[in-house]
Design a protein around this nucleic acid. Structure first.
Lengths: 168, 168
DNA sequence: ACCTGAACACCGTTCAAGT
DNA sequence: ACCTGAACACCGTTCAAGT
């Protein structure tokens, strides 16, 4: 009974979360919707476009305000919330330098340079975290339990804040 | 007459530079070597392994010394030197947080946190630059001629250096 | 050690046609 | 507007066999 574009994005995010980027394909999304692969192209121009829509959806719930440390943690959490979420955001959204609304919104509370540097760091570190977590889940590398703390320390290098956090 | 692993890596880098990531395939590398696709698997376990070897090759000539600003520019230049070079390095090398030799070498001249943050930034910004350059070459977005300066300003945010450069 | 030939189980995308 | 069915031009990888 007639899927909408939103149904397609939902199904795509479900496939991603269940199988990961490695097995993320248009054909699996079609199967998830009980539809022929060609049907997807009525809603979306191509796979890349779909990935961009997914990235927007992942990032959309993140509230941007003046507390950039908290904003950074929110963004990280949003991407970590879905398997390979950071990779999707990395390849689709954030790397449209300048034309990203996220970058502009963060710049409102700091400077364009800080916004850009911060965004690159957040996405990059989170992507690394996700890859690392997967690899150690497969027993390929030893666990590095320090990743949350590592993220926080990098944040302080960029934002120039000290250890004392008045909001906590 | 019998290819070596090095021949395979060479051919792979040639294919990447000529066609880009989008058309980078084992089958094209095989064609570049005038060999059957299956022959590649005598030299390399799989495509991912080959990408890791390519990333090492891209980054290998970069000299690491105490002038981290210059080191950063060298790394950026090395990745920009080959089409989609930053993407290959991003997915293959750098994101082995901690287990990257590059990260350890940079840490010798600063701190582990600065090394990690810097590396994430350099690779991320360079990847963004390369995507941006390609997109604007295709007329998809407007030119942003500021990317070199943008890179430099982000560098200063992380390294905490001021405008004055005693080495220049 | 290095490679061929053939096969397997997949891809993204297009397009005419149906409802 | 939304979907089917069939096709096209590809993929990565395995494996027996050749030299």
């Amino acid at each position: 009974m007639a899927n909408s574009l939103d149904d397609v994005i939902d199904a795509a995010l479900r496939v991603l979360d269940k199988r990961g980027m490695e097995f993320f394909s248009m054909r699996r999304i079609a199967a998830e919707l009980d539809v022929q692969p060609s049907a997807l192209y009525h809603h979306v121009d191509n796979k890349q476009t779909l990935l961009t829509l997914m990235a927007s959806r992942i990032v959309a719930p993140v509230v941007i305000d003046e507390d950039l440390t908290t904003v950074s943690h929110r963004l990280r959490a949003a991407m970590l919330g879905i398997r390979d979420g950071a990779e999707v955001v990395a390849t689709a959204t954030a790397f449209k330098l300048g034309s990203s609304t996220l970058e502009a919104e963060i710049a409102r509370f700091s400077t364009p340079d800080i916004a850009r540097t911060l965004l690159i760091y957040i996405i990059g570190h989170t992507q690394a975290t996700q890859l690392h977590t997967q690899a150690s889940a497969l027993g390929l590398i030893s666990q590095d339990s320090d990743l949350d703390a590592s993220f926080e320390r990098g944040l302080r290098i960029i934002l120039g804040t000290t250890g004392a956090n008045p909001n906590k």
